[in-house]
Structures are given as C-alpha cells and as structure tokens.
C-alpha cells in the first residue's frame, strides 16, 4: 500500500484525481478543507457579518458544503450566519425522503432550515406536472422552477448570499454543454464563482474547484449522512450525454476537468455578438432575458392545459399561443386574466 505523499508516515487511503497525490485520511481532510478555504478567500467570496443560505437537497454536494462551511466559518472566523434552504419539488419517493436528510443536517449542524414547495409557489407539484407533460420534458420545468424558488426562498430569508453545492465536475459539464449548444450567454457566466442575477441575491459556488470523487470520499470518511437516490423521473438527457463524455475524458486524464473550467474562465466572448440583456419579468418581476420569464410561460402553459407551451423556442411559443387563442377565444371565459398580458406582450 503506498504511503501518504505528504510524508507524514501514514498509509494513503485515496488517490486525488486533481493532483494524482496519494493521501492519508488526515492529510486529505486538511487539503480538502484548505483548498475550499483558499477558494473562498481568494475570491473574497463573503463579507464578514453576512448571512449565507445553503441550497440543501440532502445530497452529497450540499451536505459536504454545509459541513465544510460550518467548519471553516468556525475555524477561520468568517463571521457568517449559515442557514439551510430546501426546495420541495413534490416528487414522491424522492424528495420526501431526501428532505428527511436535510432535517438531519439541520439538527446536526444547528442551522435554521426553510423549506419552500413548488405547490405553494406555483400551485403544482412535480408529480402533477409529470402527469400533464409526461416524462420527457419534465426536467425543464423542475430546473426553471427550482432556480427561481431558491431565489425566492433566499429573499424571504433575507440573506446576503445563496451558496450552492455545484462541484468541479458539474461546472466542467456545464461548460461542455453550453459549447455544444452554442449558448454564449450561459457559457460566459457559467464558470463565475459568484453570479449576480440583476437585483437578486448573489449566488456563490464554493465547491467549484472540488472534484466529485473527493466530495464522495470526504463524505464517506467523515461519515456524513446524505441521500443518494436518483430522481424517479427521467434524468435530463442532454446533460446526461455531456456527463458521459466528461467522465470518459476524465478516465484518460483527470485534469481535463480543471482544464475545461480554466478554459471557460479564460474565454472572452466577442463583444459584437448580441447577447440578451437582463430585464424584469412583466408578470412576476423576477429577473429575465425575455419580457415574460420562462417560469411564467411554463406555468401559463400548465394552467391553460398547454403543458408544452414553454418547451422550445420563443417563436414556437408565439405560434402556439395565437393558435390556441383562435381556437378557444380563451380570454373571454375560462382563462385567468394573466393571459391577456401574455397576448398583449406578444410572448
């Protein structure tokens, strides 16, 4: 069995994908935590005295994030108040169980916990949405709604930052995905450690340079309780492809993950290129690149019995709305008055 690369005399327990070093348990804990501390201090991520919400799913990433932030906050005196924020999508057999794990985190780490549900925010659970839309496009709803739900929760908690457990593998995957899709606007911002969504609360990713393997190993050696069931609905197919591609590349050379992140950070997007500018949704005032935000369009579709409305391009959405209006003359009776706005604004 190889010895620890740091010459502490102990047997190594894991090989770090990031550096190739073989480390013993204690040295691994030290470098793992120190690297996150270094990431936080180098980016000047948190102002002392602020409140930070941790987006907590009960999974490995957010559990490790909560544990390490608490530990570093005490060790290095960041002076932060940490709170947990969870979203209940309403997925039976998945989220109901993982929320129990989050409640365990709340007790173990002595943090306040707030849970917001899709049902309360949007009037629909994911179970109900899947009944309407089927299992093909449901991840679009879930992703769009979760992002907004987290922001709303952060606002209700009156926090200064919203931190999420996105790890290095996630970020590299997103860079690849945005390149494959030619999505320059997202490519430009997806590697930022801190993103400011207009007047919203800054989102921060303290684990952006932390490999997934090291997170799993850290949680295992620290004996952290986390939830590991896959979502019961079909996974996001496109992301799945990017993930497989990345994992295959990682097998050849684990440093590709850091290299992809670095490339993403160094990219300069041609300024002549027209990028959508951020504005406010005319319906819910949430930050959006369109007049009506994606969440409102998706919701409108669900409420009108046109669940596919928000899936795909906006030109198609326009066509669908016009067609539907002609058929139903919908704004006269059964429809809520929001759709008058929708037509007026020509979404």
């Amino acid at each position: 069995m190889p010895m620890c690369s740091r010459k502490c005399g102990k047997n190594a327990v894991l090989k770090r994908p990031k550096t190739g070093d073989a480390l013993c348990k204690e040295c691994f804990f030290e470098v793992f935590e120190n690297e996150i501390h270094f990431t936080i201090t180098r980016a000047n991520l948190f102002k002392p005295g602020s409140t930070v919400a941790i987006g907590a799913s009960g999974g490995k990433d957010s559990t490790v994030l909560a544990y390490v932030l608490k530990l570093l906050n005490e060790k290095y005196k960041y002076g932060l108040k940490l709170v947990l924020l969870s979203i209940d999508e309403g997925i039976t057999g998945y989220r109901d169980d993982s929320l129990k794990t989050v409640e365990q985190n709340r007790d173990d780490y002595e943090m306040e916990l707030k849970v917001l549900s899709y049902k309360d925010l949007y009037g629909w659970t994911m179970d109900e949405i899947v009944k309407q839309i089927g299992r093909k496009n449901n991840c679009t709803f879930c992703g769009v709604f979760r992002r907004q739900a987290l922001d709303r929760g952060a606002m209700q908690l009156n926090v200064d930052y919203l931190s999420t457990g996105h790890n290095a593998d996630d970020i590299a995957e997103t860079v690849l995905m945005n390149i494959l899709r030619g999505d320059l606007a997202r490519l430009k911002r997806c590697t930022s450690i801190i993103t400011d969504s207009g007047d919203g609360i800054p989102r921060v990713k303290p684990l952006k340079y932390t490999y997934e393997k090291e997170i799993v190993m850290y949680a295992y050696f620290r004996k952290l309780v986390y939830f590991s069931t896959e979502c019961v609905f079909a996974p996001n197919a496109y992301r799945g492809h990017a993930r497989i591609l990345l994992k295959d590349l990682e097998k050849i050379d684990p440093s590709v993950i850091m290299n992809i992140i670095q490339s993403g950070e160094s990219l300069v997007i041609n300024e002549d290129r027209k990028l959508p500018s951020l504005t406010k949704c005319q319906k819910c005032a949430y930050v959006s690149s369109q007049q009506i935000c994606k969440a409102c369009i998706l919701l409108e579709g669900l409420n009108r019995g046109l669940p596919k409305l928000g899936i795909g391009k906006s030109s198609r959405v326009n066509k669908l709305i016009t067609e539907n209006n002609r058929q139903n003359n919908c704004c006269n009776d059964n429809c809520n008055k929001n759709c008058t706005n929708l037509v007026k604004n020509n979404v």
């Binding site: 190889p2 190594a12 073989a22």
Partner: peptide, 10 residues
Amino acid sequence: LVNDSDWELM
C-alpha cells in the same frame, strides 16, 4: 474501496 482504501491506489 478495499479495506477502506481507494482502489485507484492499487
């Protein structure tokens, strides 16, 4: 993991 060690070490 084999006996609590990463098999990639082996």
